[in-house]
């Protein structure tokens, strides 16, 4: 008789996380007429995209949206176009052209810039395309207000998040009804940690942008717009290095993101208006 191969704690954990995420993704696809997913090409949304393909046996049955602020790093755009073609994605790229034309930029206020180029760009797209569910790869351990999120989180017609009165969510029974003009944010990776994502990327061999790996003593821990994202000091040049690094690091992942620090409760203010 063959002995069963011992399964590591990490494998079991990743399988359970994967199962939970796939359940959420399938539920969103089944329950909503027009879902779409946001893809920033960062490690989290790359993991989410992988899970979507896994949920549907290789297909990606809804549009993949990139909100292009035009301040993104060139490596990200190259990666986007390459993988979209390779994986046969229905890629939708949106820009808030009016705001860009009006000269909105990080230099003229970081919160204003994020709200106009990301939140408002998404709002206009949803209005135009009538997407009623948006899948995105936020996680609880990123920052405090995300830690209080639901897997299916309703947003009002004005994009607002009523964080003081969120619907109950138990036993994978989610809020799947939304009023006309409103939509639901679906968060399949909510319960993953930063280290979980990297371990999953390692296990599944998911392609990620090279900017995450250290070069000349610096690496990006979180990817965003060029002017507002700073690399950290690091020698982690491989995924294994990164996972080891995360075990000892004592700053939070988004410490290099300028918009999070633009005043007290900056992230709450952004997110109440509909920021991711």
């Amino acid at each position: 008789m063959k002995r069963p191969i011992p399964v590591s704690d990490e494998t079991i954990r990743l399988r359970e996380l994967e199962n939970e995420s796939i359940y959420i993704i399938r539920e969103a696809y089944r329950k909503f007429k027009k879902p779409a997913m946001l893809w920033s090409m960062g490690k989290d949304s790359c993991a989410l995209l992988w899970l979507v393909r896994k949920a549907f046996f290789g297909r990606t049955p809804f549009p993949v949206v990139h909100i292009d602020t035009t301040y993104k790093m060139p490596e990200m755009i190259k990666f986007r176009d390459e993988k979209a073609a390779q994986w046969g994605l229905d890629l939708v790229v949106v820009k808030n052209r009016a705001a860009l034309k009006a000269g909105i930029s990080p230099a003229r206020g970081k919160l204003k810039c994020c709200t106009a180029l990301k939140t408002h760009a998404l709002r206009e797209l949803l209005k135009k395309e009538k997407y009623n569910a948006v899948l995105l790869a936020i996680r609880r351990d990123e920052e405090g207000t995300r830690a209080k999120e639901r897997c299916f989180s309703p947003r009002g017609g004005g994009f607002e998040w009523d964080f003081k009165d969120q619907p109950p969510e138990l036993w994978d029974q989610f809020q799947t009804d939304s009023r006309e003009g409103a939509h639901i944010r679906v968060h399949p990776l909510l319960h993953w940690t930063e280290a979980d994502v990297w371990k999953y990327i390692r296990q599944e061999n998911i392609p990620v942008i090279k900017l995450y790996f250290a070069k000349n003593g610096k690496r990006y821990r979180s990817l965003g717009c060029l002017p507002c994202t700073a690399p950290i000091n690091s020698r982690a040049a491989t995924i294994d290095d990164i996972i080891l690094e995360l075990e000892t690091i004592l700053t939070s992942e988004r410490a290099g993101r300028a918009q999070d620090k633009a005043g007290d409760y900056a992230m709450q203010k952004l997110r109440v208006e509909g920021y991711m």
């Binding site: 109950p168 138990l170 036993w171 029974q173 809020q175 009804d177 939304s178």
Partner: peptide, 13 residues
């Protein structure tokens, strides 16, 4: 285990 939905909202477990 189950939930009850009243209108559009999960209202009971």
């Amino acid at each position: 285990r189950f939930v009850l939905v009243d209108g559009e909202r999960v209202s009971g477990g």
